[in-house]
């Protein structure tokens, strides 16, 4: 599983960071980005799905090749 944050959509709610701090980092303005290249370790996939389902701006998506 691989995820990305759409920086055009993110407005800094930081819900993803609150629910899955292993997968996201937020800057001083609240904007979120994925840790590393967004590859989600298998044991964190549930957390990644939780972050996707809690983003009020629909800014997180799973990348499918």
């Amino acid at each position: 599983m691989k995820i990305r944050v759409d920086e055009e959509k993110c407005t800094g709610h930081a819900r993803c960071y609150g629910l899955a701090p292993e997968l996201f980092s937020v800057d001083d303005y609240g904007l979120s980005s994925v840790v590393g290249d967004g590859t989600v370790p298998s044991e964190l996939e549930d957390k990644a799905r939780l972050a996707i389902a809690n983003c009020p701006e629909y800014a997180i998506e799973e990348i499918t090749d």
Partner: peptide
């Protein structure tokens, strides 16, 4: 609740 895109803090640029 697992699906919770609530907007208690607003939505958009004025979050």
């Amino acid at each position: 609740r697992a699906h919770n895109r609530h907007v208690a803090f607003g939505s958009g640029i004025h979050r």
